[in-house]
């Protein structure tokens, strides 16, 4: 009987410890943001936590931590007097929390952006929108890491390296609709190497090699541009809008951190 009680209390103790750990984790979810990251990326500016301006869609579980589809949807269309200037994505517990900052113009039509990111841990991802009046608002989502053998690294880096710099635009149909937002997808082939590794295994340094700048224009007018970092998946992918007023040229200019530059144009017509 005594043993039984002892065992029971031990079980409770274990359960208690586990619960305490979980509670701690829940309370700590925002700690990195509150204590470090907010100040680091936005200084003393005030950020309103609200879904009034944007919505963030992230999977509850990072099925493939190397390729987590994330999308941000703007609540209002872009207008010359009222538009979203920038959407910044921060992944709190990644080795480099800054994932990307996307810049839009009234010509973007809609400040929606979808991309694929790497997640290294259980973490919040935040999207912070800055409107043209300088106000900041934030939405966040929690993403669980997946189980199993996967890692936030491209599956076939050699293939990505072999076609590095190759790009494509994909439109929703063959033709664009004039004077309204058209969705387009930019595919960029790049290995996106984070540079993180256990050096004593490889006995050679594999420096970081990733896309750090993207500029997209239509007939010379900027639609979307971005600063990006190692959280971008291998073969970065971006989905966004533009408003064509006539036939013309979509152009992508991409740079990486090793100074390589790539560009690509594609003609679109109504």
């Amino acid at each position: 009987m005594k043993t039984k009680i002892y065992i029971k209390s031990f079980c409770f103790l274990l359960a208690g410890l586990m619960l305490a750990n979980m509670a701690l984790a829940a309370g700590e979810e925002d700690a990195a943001w509150n204590n470090v990251l907010k100040q680091k990326y936005f200084g003393d500016r005030s950020i309103d936590e609200s879904t009034a301006s944007i919505e963030l869609t992230a999977p509850y579980r990072a099925e493939d931590p190397a390729l987590v589809p994330i999308s941000v949807t703007a609540k209002k269309p872009q207008s010359p007097t009222d538009y979203i200037k920038t959407i910044t994505l921060i992944i709190d517990n990644n080795p480099v929390p800054f994932a990307a900052a996307f810049h839009f113009t009234p010509e973007s039509g809609k400040a929606d952006i979808a991309t694929r990111l790497r997640f290294n841990a259980y973490t919040n991802i935040r999207a912070i929108a800055e409107t043209n009046d300088g106000k900041l608002s934030m939405v966040k989502a929690f993403v669980k890491a997946s189980g199993g053998c996967s890692a936030p690294i491209g599956a076939d880096l050699e293939a990505a390296m072999a076609r590095m710099g190759k790009m494509k635009f994909k439109l929703e149909g063959d033709k664009v609709s004039l004077n309204q937002p058209n969705q387009t997808q930019l595919l960029v082939s790049h290995p996106s190497i984070s540079g993180m590794q256990m050096d004593q295994i490889s006995r050679q340094i594999k420096p970081a090699h990733f896309v750090n700048q993207v500029k997209v224009s239509f007939n010379g007018k900027p639609i979307m541009s971005a600063e990006t970092d190692i959280a971008l998946s291998t073969d970065p992918n971006f989905r966004f809008y533009f408003v064509p007023d006539k036939a013309g040229e979509l152009k992508a200019e991409v740079k990486d951190n090793q100074g390589k530059e790539f560009s690509y144009t594609q003609t679109v017509s109504p």
Partner: peptide, 12 residues
């Protein structure tokens, strides 16, 4: 294998 192990080890 070596390169793959080196890249994955910190995460694993």
């Amino acid at each position: 294998l070596t390169q793959s192990l080196a890249a994955r080890a910190p995460y694993y």
